[in-house]
Design a protein around this nucleic acid. Structure first.
Length: 523
RNA sequence: GGCCCCCUCGUCUAGUCUGGCCUAGGACACCAGGUUUUCAUCCUGGCGACAGGGGUUCAAAUCCCCUGGGGGUCACCA
């Protein structure tokens, strides 16, 4: 395309430039006018992609002292569910992404359900019809199918231009008045649309690619997403639209509407997609995609926020761990990367562990307790009675946890009958390997009974080590069978701490049981 | 397939706009040591990338062109 003067000669209607207030006079005013939104459709579960998009929008609003708005995009009546809507509200709230206006909070631009704004959408559609930017298309679904089939047959796909695009206005009106069904389509002009994407820079999309898309479905009552989103963003004075890259090619459609309305469009920024390990849009095929899955497994919410922030953004390239406040303080939409980010579950897990380890025993216990109750290890009443004990237990296993849900596995042995502790094969094998195991266990028990060995965990520990040496044995010769006797597990917290937590009597009972069990051959 | 977007270690990324400080830095993962009674934590070290090819330049990961690869999108879904 030699000699084409770049974007300089793009037709009026398609050439859009963000409105900038030059001088600094209105600087503060502009700042406070920053309004971003997310417009999720309440279908299915709360996708991590939505969480990431929400996080970036939220951070942008907080960073610039703007407003973050939640609007429920329920235009597809067939697929919407109230359960899903509630899950979205709950999920975002749980993550701490508080919104300033929304369906539950209200605000100056109510209502915040798109379905309740249809009247206004239809008014706008009518306006566009009158101004000639849109037209009635009386095509039937069958005709459309036929057109598509023909395209298919020719192995090409060109933008649809409605059959009734050039219908005389009076004819069109007459047929409508006569009760003939029609859809309202937008009349795509020739040319191309260019815009400055805050993430991607200059983007140009030729109009011959874009259908005369449907704004209002046949029947005249159901506006479509691409249309309502513009109406609502405009009415709600949205200043910036940050959304996933899958919407990039939709942008000209929306820009054209603003232009037809004679309005300034918001600025756009298209976030890189979150990819699965197959490098395709993150989907259930390659792993969990729902926020609820991670919530249920016990990922600390701060870890989720931190990890999501890292999908397409970095604090400084050195530090992966940062607080929400640091994120907000440093977030710049221009720093968001353009390339898709492959979701790495292992790094996510690591990060969960990092955050979990930062918690106080109280916090940790509060987060883990639901899993303990769920597993039926104890009742809530018992748990609160034994809180002090649980706190110690929590502290003892903290370094070994990555997720809250792992907690019960570490403490389940405490709740077993002392003669029925279940032995992990690895632990039992290690214990049986020690020929003097049963003998040493017996000697240790005697020393415990006689009071020769006693004291707090640390003192008991060092005394026991000396005792072992005196028996002319090596430390693991007692410790391995002892650990098996006490917990049945191959690894775990300090043995003497565990004994302390268990109580001396129960510890002895377990040692006695182990002596019997380990004395007979493994079954 | 058309159009659009993208391309630094296996993965997330810093560096790219404003060429030189980059013999490309950090993190996860992996491997090897150390610490520990064990597991985990923790510490130390290692492995490992500028997609390829042309240009421009004294100098290119950074600028330009071509090729290749990946993704997104092509609905009266959102």
């Amino acid at each position: 395309m030699p000699g084409e003067g770049c974007c300089a000669r793009a037709p009026d209607v398609s050439s859009w430039a963000p409105k900038r207030v030059p001088g600094g006079a209105q600087g503060n005013a502009m700042e406070s006018q920053i309004r971003v939104r997310i417009a999720p459709s309440p279908t299915g579960t709360v996708h991590l992609g939505l969480c990431r998009t929400s996080l970036f929008n939220w951070a942008f609003a907080r960073r610039h002292g703007g407003k973050f708005i939640l609007r429920i995009e329920d235009t597809d009546h067939g697929r919407n569910t109230e359960v899903s809507e509630k899950a979205i509200l709950d999920g975002l709230e749980w993550l701490g992404l508080d919104w300033d206006e929304g369906p539950d909070k209200g605000g100056p631009f109510e209502p915040y359900h798109q379905s309740q704004r249809v009247k206004r959408h239809l008014e706008v559609a009518d306006e566009l019809l009158k101004s000639g930017h849109a037209y009635r298309d009386f095509s039937t679904p069958e005709e459309l199918d036929a057109w598509r089939a023909a395209q298919e047959a020719r192995k090409q796909r060109e933008a649809y231009r409605g059959k009734d695009r050039d219908l005389d206005a009076a004819d069109s009106q007459a047929r409508a008045d006569g009760g003939e069904a029609f859809a309202i389509r937008f009349r795509i002009p020739e040319g191309e649309s260019s815009f400055k994407d805050l993430v991607r820079g200059d983007v140009t999309i030729p109009h011959f690619e874009i259908d005369d898309w449907v704004m209002v479905r046949r029947g005249g009552e159901a506006p479509t997403y691409n249309f309502v989103v513009v109406c609502d963003d405009f009415d709600m004075k949205i200043s910036h639209v940050f959304r996933g890259e899958e919407h990039l090619v939709n942008t000209p459609k929306q820009l054209l509407i603003y232009s037809a309305l004679g309005q300034t469009a918001p600025e756009f920024g298209h976030l890189p997609l979150m990819l699965g390990t197959d490098r395709k849009k993150l989907s259930k095929r390659t792993g969990d995609t729902a926020l609820g899955d991670y919530q249920a497994k016990g990922y600390p919410k701060a870890a989720i926020v931190n990890f999501l922030a890292l999908q397409g953004w970095a604090l400084d390239g050195e530090n992966d761990l940062f607080t929400r406040d640091q994120f907000v303080g440093a977030f710049d939409i221009g720093d968001v990367s353009k390339a898709g980010a492959v979701f790495d579950p292992k790094k996510f897990l690591w990060m969960a562990g990092e955050y979990l380890r930062q918690e106080s025993p109280e916090e940790l216990l509060d987060h883990c307790l639901p899993y303990v109750l769920e597993d039926g290890l104890m009742t809530a009443d018992v748990a609160s009675e034994r809180r002090a004990w649980l706190l110690q237990v929590a502290a003892s296993v903290q370094d070994r946890l990555q997720l809250y849900s792992e907690f019960p596995d570490w403490i389940a042995h405490f709740f077993a009958a002392d003669d029925q502790v279940s032995y992990d094969p690895k632990a039992e094998k290690g214990a049986r390997k020690r020929e003097r195991g049963v003998e040493l266990l017996g000697g240790f028990l005697d020393a415990l009974d006689s009071g020769d060995l006693s004291g707090d965990p640390a003192a008991l520990g060092s005394a026991t080590k000396e005792w072992i040496t005196a028996q002319d044995a090596k430390i693991p010769e007692l410790f391995q069978p002892l650990r098996c006797a006490l917990t049945g597990m191959p690894g775990g917290p300090d043995i003497f701490e565990t004994m302390d937590l268990l109580g001396l009597d129960r510890a002895k009972a377990r040692i006695r049981a182990a002596m019997d069990r380990l004395a007979t051959p493994a079954s």
